[in-house]
Amino acid sequence: MKLAIDETRCKGCNLCTKVCPYKIFKEGKKANRRGIIIPELDRPERCTNCRLMHLYGRTLCGVCQLTCPDQAIHWVEEQPYEPHKVAIEY
């Protein structure tokens, strides 16, 4: 699964940047066509839910999704064999 922000819904409140334990959401820099600065995702493949949702058959963590007041955060299916950056955490 892949974490994604729905640009048609996000209003750029940056609440997601506060709540993720991995700090995956970073304040964005550029305004989009609607003048809204959408947060950027920093190595979203670290998200617990992306990795384990299918295995456990339920949403894990999901704090960003519950918090987002604009229902803009969701997970989408990945294309087979999408390249990943490998992150090793200590």
């Binding site: 209003k11 609440l15 999704q65 918090t67 987002c68 604009d70 803009a72």
Partner: peptide, 18 residues
């Protein structure tokens, strides 16, 4: 009906989610 009319960052959306 989405996106809703609440202001950016309004907490109401979060409470509806929960």
């Amino acid at each position: 009906r989405l996106p809703h009319i609440f202001c950016a960052g309004c907490g109401n959306g979060t409470i509806i989610n929960c």
